[in-house]
């Protein structure tokens, strides 16, 4: 097994009386794509926020590329990035300005070339000089993806990376991510409610519920293990189960 790019051990997050994460442990091998699945309130967003250093865990250990995220997340930040349709980029800046600012924050050389390259790859060239706030939801999703790829991250955390995209564009984005991963050996942690996307992209699937890891495996293994026809049905079975055994 390759080295773990992401390692999460006994992670707990408590908000007052609410337990958002309950002793979560998993690893993501370097160069692989792992999907984090679960219904609303399962703890996916909390997990991602902790991995990004935006949220402090109550207890547990998290490391990314060998850097302890809880004690010093700044050491890992130059090598990771994320995209989420729920976190905006400044609306009153153009797409080009937004990307230029983030290129600066990541200390990129030849930032202009990189912006042009990404705009071309993600079909954003004609929107580069439009204000981010004037874009459609799908266009914003692509801009967020461009921002996430600016620094050529070794670890990419993607929260619903193809939300609001039409099937054709979504397919092209997935293909681009796959090409990027093959070319760079990057590690991807993917949170998505799009099961065909997960089946296509993920080497491994983590099923969460109530802040706990309920099951894990390849998509095919999980479908077979739970005796279902597809990953959607596995997801529903786990989401609607009352606890230990969803099979």
């Amino acid at each position: 097994m390759p080295d773990a790019a992401i390692s999460v051990q006994a992670l707990t997050k408590r908000y007052g009386d609410t337990l958002a994460l309950d002793g979560l442990s998993f690893t993501v091998p370097a160069g692989k794509t792992v999907a984090l699945l679960g219904g609303n309130g399962a703890g996916k967003s909390t997990t991602i926020a902790i991995l990004l250093g935006l949220l402090t865990p109550s207890s547990g250990a998290v490391s990314i590329l060998g850097h302890d995220i809880v004690r010093n997340h700044y050491a890992a930040l130059p090598f990771l990035n994320f995209s989420s349709p729920y976190v905006d980029l400044p609306h009153r800046l153009t797409v080009r300005q937004n990307l230029a600012v983030y290129a600066g924050l990541y200390g990129l050389r030849r930032a202009k070339d990189r912006i042009v390259e990404l705009a071309d790859a993600l079909d954003l060239t004609r929107f580069l000089d439009r204000h981010a706030g004037d874009l459609s939801a799908g266009q914003k999703t692509r801009v967020a993806l461009a921002k996430a790829l600016l620094n050529r991250p070794r670890v990419l955390l993607l929260d619903e990376p193809t939300a609001s995209l039409d099937p054709d564009t979504a397919d092209r984005m997935r293909t681009y991510l796959e090409i990027y991963q093959r070319a760079t050996g990057a590690t991807i942690l993917l949170a998505s409610h799009n099961m065909p996307e997960v089946q296509r992209m993920a080497d491994w699937v983590l099923m969460m519920k109530g802040g706990k890891l309920m099951d894990e495996g390849t998509s095919d293994d999980l479908i077979e293990k739970h005796g279902r026809d597809n990953l959607d049905e596995v997801f529903l079975a786990i989401a609607r189960s009352d606890g230990e055994d969803a099979t």
Partner: peptide, 9 residues
Amino acid sequence: NLGHMFVSP
């Protein structure tokens, strides 16, 4: 935008 800003270095 704070989420994006503080995921950068």
